[in-house]
């Protein structure tokens, strides 16, 4: 790999990693409060893409002005965030809460998660067709600046900036607010959190809403970079899940770190090993990390503390 290639692949790697990080937060937060891998989170991500597609096809924009572009991007965020949050909220109510109320075994949750994932994905395929739809980017995706001769586009800047803002916001929410304290308490010991006056059902709902909001917005950003389709959630979803595990499942900062790491690994694997290794690399890293540090990079525990 030449020095130029390094820079050429670094920038898309960072953008991809930022997206994986944002998606991974949704997996890790839900795992924190429910000890459940929400496999349908990839479809929350997909819903974000489709929601913006629906809105954008209704609006006729050709060569929008700068002000118009900003408005459209904000509209995209709002639409995707709302759709993602709503889907995640409904998902918890329909697919997980009834099982929780019946004290169902762990396996039932997992099956329900996979079932919900297939259902949502194929429902989108039925409604929107099984081909890919391209999402019109509401701005001219030109080069903004170059880093060591490597181009950085408007979309890449948008992805990285919005991901950073979301991650900072989320970190503050979890660590500095009362709502965040409730989420952390439920994650550490749900029953005792209840004894402190925390409404566990409410905390779980809010966790899904926050994770869904981030996942939906990530879907919108991802769709501008590639396209919208009923299977678009699968690969980013499974990679972000791997990122959450690499970082230490249940640990929000770990998910951010894991996402960035896997985005970079994926991007660099194509010049280093060839394009065909692109989708293998992230999972090689997952296996290597788990071999040497089963709790993930920032993970502290696997079981519950007494």
């Amino acid at each position: 790999m030449t020095v130029q290639e390094f820079w050429d692949y670094l920038i898309p790697g960072i953008a991809l990693g930022a997206l994986y990080a944002v998606i991974a937060i949704g997996y890790t937060m839900v795992y924190g409060v429910l000890q459940l891998i929400n496999f349908a989170h990839s479809e929350v991500f997909m819903v974000g893409g489709f929601a913006v597609l629906m809105v954008f096809t209704k609006i006729d924009f050709n060569d929008p002005s700068v002000g118009m572009s900003v408005l459209l991007v904000l509209l995209g965020f709002a639409t995707a965030g709302f759709a993602g949050a709503g889907t995640a909220f409904a998902l918890e109510k329909v697919a997980y809460r009834p099982l929780r109320k019946r004290n169902a075994p762990r396996l039932a949750f997992l099956i329900s998660a996979i079932g919900a994932s297939f259902l949502l994905s194929n429902l989108a395929g039925k409604l929107f067709g099984r081909n890919n739809h391209s999402l019109t980017i509401p701005f001219e995706n030109k080069k903004v600046f170059t880093v060591m001769n490597a181009q950085v586009t408007v979309l890449q800047v948008l992805i990285v900036c919005s991901a950073v803002i979301m991650m900072i916001g989320l970190d503050l929410l979890v660590n500095r607010t009362k709502m965040g304290a409730g989420i952390r308490a439920v994650a550490q010991d749900a029953e005792t959190a209840g004894l402190m006056g925390v409404d566990i059902d409410k905390v779980i709902s809010r966790t899904f809403i926050v994770g869904g909001l981030l996942g939906g917005i990530a879907g919108f950003l991802f769709a501008m970079n590639s396209s919208v389709g009923y299977t678009m959630g699968f690969f980013p979803g499974i990679t972000a899940f791997a990122a959450a595990v690499v970082g230490g499942i249940g640990n929000v900062r770990g998910a951010m770190l894991g996402g960035l790491l896997l985005g970079l690994v994926e991007s660099f694997s194509s010049p280093l090993f060839g394009e065909e290794w692109r989708y293998v690399s992230a999972f090689v890293v997952l296996i290597l990390v788990l071999m040497f540090r089963p709790t993930g990079i920032l993970g502290e525990r696997l079981g519950r503390t007494a």
Partner: peptide, 18 residues
């Protein structure tokens, strides 16, 4: 059953969650 990864103060604050 203290919250192990919260500080002492945060644990006390949890007690006043209501």
């Amino acid at each position: 059953r203290v919250f192990p990864r919260m500080t002492v103060l945060e644990n006390l604050q949890m007690g006043a969650y209501r």
